[in-house]
């Protein structure tokens, strides 16, 4: 564990808390994409199967369970809890995630896992782990699309996405740190490439976020 990873994980937890708070305080789901969180739930459920096979640390296990439970709670709140449920606009959150996210990532993961380990080294848990890495890299897309449609970004919504992006950025620093200071450390290029791609998706958002913070004005996205 290093400071970048811990800060990254905390930023992720904070982002989830901000979103849950935002849903409860504002009592609406305007500008929030439930599809992004459904994708994250798939990511966590497929990646954290190692909860049953490998024990890393108590911290690691607790955080995994926390991510699964809190993400499920976000989805439940938006889809089933009134009055929030009736404010959720399905027609604005229409990213075709099976066709454009889940299926392509499943194909890509199958191909790269088979190339990497061959038929003899095939492992279903490993395949799902690789799939989750690919899927996480684009899971924020539905949220960014919804944001673009609403254009005016509500304060807490902006903060929740900011901390989500900060989490990914801090993970890049964490890998640089680990590569330099950890013995027995092995690179994993799929993890790195997906991590960088995921961070790049936030760049545009960061630009307008900081611009609005600097001017102290309202946060709106350009058309």
């Amino acid at each position: 564990m290093n400071i970048f990873r811990l800060a990254g994980d905390m930023s992720h937890v904070f982002s989830i808390l901000v979103l849950l708070l935002r849903l409860r305080v504002a009592k609406n789901a305007q500008g929030i994409s439930v599809r992004t969180h459904e994708l994250f739930l798939i990511v966590f459920l497929t990646r954290y199967l190692d909860l049953f096979t490998t024990f890393y640390s108590l911290y690691n296990s607790i955080m995994k369970i926390l991510y699964i439970v809190s993400t499920a709670s976000i989805i439940y709140t938006i889809k089933f809890q009134e009055p929030i449920k009736s404010t959720y606009d399905k027609s604005q959150d229409s990213f075709l995630y099976w066709q454009f996210a889940v299926a392509p990532c499943a194909v890509l993961a199958s191909v790269t896992h088979l190339i990497g380990s061959g038929i003899s080294g095939f492992s279903f848990i490993e395949l799902l782990w690789t799939f989750s890495i690919y899927l996480e890299s684009i899971a924020i897309l539905p949220q960014l699309i919804v944001l673009q449609r609403y254009r005016e970004v509500e304060n807490l919504t902006g903060n929740y996405i900011f901390f989500m992006g900060a989490y990914r950025f801090l993970y890049i620093l964490n890998w640089i740190y680990r590569a330099n200071f950890e013995a027995h450390y092995q690179h994993h290029w799929v993890v790195y490439i997906c991590g960088v791609l995921q961070t790049l998706l936030y760049v545009d958002f960061f630009y307008y976020y900081f611009k609005s913070k600097k001017s102290g004005g309202r946060f709106t996205l350009p058309t």
């Binding site: 590569a179 450390y185 092995q186």
Partner: peptide
């Protein structure tokens, strides 16, 4: 033991 990037992370 060797540790691979991503494997022991969240």
């Amino acid at each position: 033991a060797k540790v691979t990037a991503g494997k022991d992370e969240l």
